[in-house]
Each structure stands twice: as structure tokens, then as C-alpha cells.
Deep mutational scan, measured.
Amino acid sequence: SQVHIGNTTFTFDNPEKAQKYAEKYAKKKGLTVQKNGDVWTVE
């Protein structure tokens, strides 16, 4: 599972961890999370 934030990609061994990280980061920065398969993009 991966989380894309700008030009940075974070890889997680667990989809739940990836989703939590993406949502927490997005909330903190006032951004949105797009999910595509097991990839979350914060923008």
C-alpha cells in the first residue's frame, strides 16, 4: 500500500496504516485523500 503526498511516496505493509496516515496528514494540512486501489493520494 502506498501514500502519495506531492512528489513523495510512502510505502506501508498494511493498507489500514496507509489509510490512517493519509487521512491524518490530510486533516492536518486541510487537504483531501483520493483512493485508487491500494494507493492513497493526498492533494
Score class of each variant (00 low, 15 high):
residue 12 F to E: 01
residue 41 T to I: 14
residue 7 N to P: 06
residue 8 T to F: 15
residue 29 K to S: 06
residue 22 A to I: 09
residue 14 N to H: 08
residue 5 I to K: 03
residue 8 T to I: 14
residue 17 K to T: 13
residue 31 L to T: 03
residue 29 K to T: 09
residue 24 K to S: 13
residue 38 D to H: 07
residue 30 G to D: 03
residue 12 F to C: 04
residue 42 V to M: 05
residue 14 N to C: 13
residue 17 K to W: 09
residue 17 K to H: 12
residue 12 F to I: 03
residue 6 G to R: 10
residue 2 Q to A: 09
residue 36 N to C: 12
residue 24 K to I: 10
residue 22 A to S: 03
residue 3 V to N: 02
residue 2 Q to I: 14
residue 1 S to C: 15
residue 12 F to S: 03
residue 12 F to L: 04
residue 24 K to D: 14
residue 16 E to W: 12
residue 18 A to D: 00
residue 9 T to W: 15
residue 26 A to Y: 04
residue 11 T to C: 15
residue 16 E to K: 12
residue 6 G to W: 11
residue 36 N to W: 10
residue 36 N to G: 03
residue 2 Q to R: 13
residue 2 Q to C: 15
residue 27 K to W: 07
residue 26 A to W: 03
residue 36 N to V: 14
residue 26 A to P: 00
residue 12 F to Y: 03
residue 12 F to A: 01
residue 25 Y to I: 11
residue 31 L to R: 01
residue 27 K to L: 07
residue 4 H to M: 13
residue 8 T to G: 05
residue 2 Q to P: 03
residue 28 K to Y: 11
residue 11 T to Q: 10
residue 28 K to T: 08
residue 18 A to I: 01
residue 34 Q to F: 13
residue 36 N to F: 12
residue 39 V to A: 08
residue 13 D to M: 10
residue 15 P to Y: 07
residue 2 Q to H: 12
residue 11 T to V: 13
residue 10 F to R: 08
residue 25 Y to H: 05
residue 21 Y to H: 04
residue 8 T to H: 15
residue 32 T to Y: 05
residue 16 E to A: 12
residue 31 L to Q: 02
residue 17 K to M: 13
residue 27 K to N: 08
residue 10 F to W: 10
residue 21 Y to D: 03
residue 13 D to E: 11
residue 26 A to V: 01
residue 40 W to Q: 00
residue 16 E to G: 08
residue 40 W to G: 00
residue 20 K to W: 13
residue 14 N to L: 08
residue 5 I to Q: 02
residue 19 Q to L: 09
residue 4 H to Q: 13
residue 19 Q to M: 10
residue 16 E to S: 10
residue 15 P to I: 05
residue 30 G to T: 04
residue 30 G to M: 03
residue 4 H to W: 08
residue 34 Q to Y: 14
residue 2 Q to N: 07
residue 11 T to N: 10
residue 25 Y to P: 00
residue 18 A to W: 03
residue 23 E to R: 07
residue 6 G to M: 09
residue 34 Q to G: 05
residue 9 T to Y: 15
residue 33 V to M: 08
residue 3 V to F: 04
residue 17 K to N: 11
residue 5 I to T: 03
residue 40 W to M: 00
residue 5 I to M: 04
residue 26 A to S: 04
residue 4 H to C: 15
residue 21 Y to R: 02
residue 19 Q to C: 11
residue 26 A to F: 05
residue 37 G to Y: 03
residue 4 H to L: 12
residue 19 Q to S: 06
residue 25 Y to S: 01
residue 14 N to E: 08
residue 18 A to H: 00
residue 40 W to E: 01
residue 23 E to D: 06
residue 16 E to T: 08
residue 40 W to N: 01
residue 7 N to I: 07
residue 30 G to R: 05
residue 23 E to W: 08
residue 38 D to F: 13
residue 36 N to D: 10
residue 7 N to K: 12
residue 43 E to I: 15
residue 7 N to V: 07
residue 22 A to V: 07
residue 3 V to M: 03
residue 3 V to Q: 02
residue 14 N to V: 07
residue 13 D to A: 12
residue 11 T to K: 10
residue 38 D to E: 10
residue 31 L to G: 05
residue 8 T to K: 15
residue 10 F to L: 14
residue 37 G to C: 03
residue 16 E to P: 01
residue 8 T to D: 08
residue 11 T to H: 14
residue 33 V to G: 01
residue 1 S to V: 14
residue 7 N to A: 09
residue 13 D to I: 08
residue 41 T to C: 15
residue 5 I to G: 00
residue 29 K to W: 15
residue 21 Y to K: 00
residue 22 A to G: 01
residue 20 K to M: 12
residue 1 S to R: 10
residue 17 K to F: 09
residue 41 T to Y: 14
residue 14 N to P: 01
residue 16 E to Y: 12
residue 17 K to G: 07
residue 10 F to I: 13
residue 24 K to G: 11
residue 28 K to F: 11
residue 3 V to P: 02
residue 32 T to H: 07
residue 21 Y to A: 06
residue 39 V to Q: 07
residue 24 K to H: 11
residue 2 Q to L: 12
residue 26 A to C: 05
residue 35 K to L: 13
residue 35 K to N: 06
residue 28 K to P: 03
residue 10 F to S: 03
residue 20 K to I: 12
residue 37 G to R: 04
residue 12 F to Q: 03
residue 1 S to I: 14
residue 30 G to K: 04
residue 31 L to A: 05
residue 1 S to P: 14
residue 3 V to L: 06
residue 29 K to M: 14
residue 24 K to L: 12
residue 15 P to S: 07
residue 21 Y to F: 15
residue 35 K to W: 09
residue 6 G to S: 06
residue 40 W to S: 01
residue 23 E to N: 06
residue 34 Q to M: 13
residue 13 D to R: 07
residue 27 K to T: 06
residue 22 A to P: 00
residue 9 T to F: 15
residue 18 A to E: 00
residue 36 N to Q: 13
residue 7 N to H: 13
residue 13 D to S: 13
residue 33 V to D: 00
residue 35 K to E: 01
residue 15 P to C: 12
residue 32 T to L: 08
residue 27 K to Q: 09
residue 21 Y to L: 06
residue 32 T to E: 05
residue 27 K to P: 00
residue 9 T to S: 07
residue 31 L to D: 00
residue 28 K to W: 13
residue 5 I to F: 06
residue 41 T to E: 10
residue 8 T to M: 15
residue 14 N to S: 14
residue 27 K to R: 10
residue 1 S to L: 12
residue 16 E to D: 10
residue 19 Q to V: 05
residue 37 G to P: 02
residue 23 E to Y: 11
residue 28 K to E: 13
residue 2 Q to E: 11
residue 19 Q to Y: 11
residue 34 Q to L: 11
residue 16 E to C: 11
residue 28 K to N: 07
residue 31 L to W: 13
residue 18 A to N: 03
residue 43 E to D: 12
residue 5 I to A: 04
residue 10 F to A: 03
residue 32 T to A: 08
residue 1 S to H: 14
residue 35 K to R: 14
residue 10 F to T: 03
residue 25 Y to E: 05
residue 6 G to L: 08
residue 34 Q to A: 09
residue 1 S to A: 13
residue 28 K to G: 07
residue 22 A to D: 00
residue 28 K to H: 08
residue 10 F to M: 10
residue 11 T to R: 09
residue 17 K to I: 12
residue 14 N to G: 06
residue 10 F to C: 14
residue 13 D to W: 12
residue 13 D to T: 10
residue 33 V to E: 02
residue 36 N to M: 13
residue 17 K to V: 12
residue 41 T to L: 11
residue 19 Q to T: 02
residue 5 I to P: 01
residue 10 F to Q: 04
residue 30 G to I: 03
residue 2 Q to V: 14
residue 19 Q to P: 01
residue 6 G to K: 09
residue 28 K to C: 15
residue 19 Q to A: 12
residue 33 V to I: 09
residue 1 S to K: 08
residue 5 I to C: 08
residue 12 F to P: 00
residue 38 D to G: 08
residue 31 L to K: 02
residue 19 Q to I: 06
residue 22 A to T: 02
residue 39 V to I: 12
residue 2 Q to W: 12
residue 26 A to R: 02
residue 13 D to H: 06
residue 29 K to R: 13
residue 34 Q to C: 14
residue 25 Y to D: 00
residue 16 E to L: 11
residue 1 S to D: 04
residue 37 G to A: 06
residue 9 T to P: 02
residue 16 E to I: 11
residue 31 L to F: 13
residue 15 P to W: 08
residue 40 W to T: 02
residue 6 G to Y: 11
residue 28 K to R: 10
residue 31 L to E: 00
residue 4 H to Y: 07
residue 34 Q to P: 02
residue 17 K to C: 15
residue 7 N to Q: 08
residue 7 N to T: 10
residue 14 N to T: 15
residue 34 Q to E: 07
residue 25 Y to L: 12
residue 22 A to L: 08
residue 24 K to W: 15
residue 29 K to D: 03
residue 7 N to L: 08
residue 1 S to M: 10
residue 8 T to A: 11
residue 30 G to C: 09
residue 33 V to Y: 06
residue 42 V to G: 00
residue 8 T to L: 15
residue 18 A to P: 03
residue 12 F to M: 03
residue 5 I to L: 05
residue 16 E to N: 07
residue 14 N to D: 14
residue 37 G to S: 02
residue 36 N to K: 11
residue 12 F to G: 02
residue 1 S to G: 12
residue 39 V to G: 10
residue 10 F to N: 01
residue 18 A to R: 00
residue 24 K to Q: 14
residue 23 E to Q: 09
residue 23 E to M: 09
residue 40 W to R: 01
residue 38 D to Q: 07
residue 10 F to H: 07
residue 18 A to G: 02
residue 6 G to F: 13
residue 41 T to A: 04
residue 43 E to W: 11
residue 1 S to E: 02
residue 32 T to W: 04
residue 33 V to A: 10
residue 21 Y to N: 00
residue 26 A to L: 05
residue 36 N to P: 01
residue 26 A to K: 02
residue 14 N to M: 07
residue 1 S to N: 11
residue 21 Y to I: 05
residue 3 V to C: 06
residue 34 Q to S: 13
residue 35 K to F: 11
residue 30 G to H: 05
residue 27 K to M: 08
residue 37 G to M: 03
residue 19 Q to W: 09
residue 42 V to C: 04
residue 43 E to P: 05
residue 30 G to Y: 03
residue 3 V to A: 03
residue 6 G to P: 04
residue 32 T to D: 04
residue 4 H to T: 10
residue 16 E to Q: 11
residue 18 A to F: 01
residue 7 N to D: 10
residue 30 G to W: 03
residue 4 H to P: 04
residue 27 K to D: 05
residue 31 L to N: 01
residue 22 A to F: 06
residue 21 Y to P: 00
residue 18 A to K: 00
residue 26 A to M: 04
residue 21 Y to V: 06
residue 18 A to V: 00
residue 20 K to A: 13
residue 11 T to G: 04
residue 38 D to S: 10
residue 5 I to W: 04
residue 11 T to Y: 15
residue 23 E to K: 08
residue 23 E to T: 05
residue 12 F to K: 02
residue 30 G to S: 04
residue 8 T to V: 14
residue 41 T to G: 01
residue 19 Q to H: 08
residue 42 V to S: 03
residue 26 A to E: 00
residue 40 W to D: 00
residue 9 T to R: 11
residue 20 K to V: 09
residue 14 N to R: 06
residue 10 F to Y: 13
residue 2 Q to K: 13
residue 41 T to R: 08
residue 25 Y to M: 10
residue 32 T to Q: 08
residue 22 A to Q: 00
residue 40 W to V: 00
residue 30 G to A: 04
residue 9 T to V: 15
residue 4 H to I: 15
residue 3 V to Y: 02
residue 15 P to T: 06
residue 39 V to D: 09
residue 22 A to R: 03
residue 20 K to S: 12
residue 30 G to E: 01
residue 27 K to V: 04
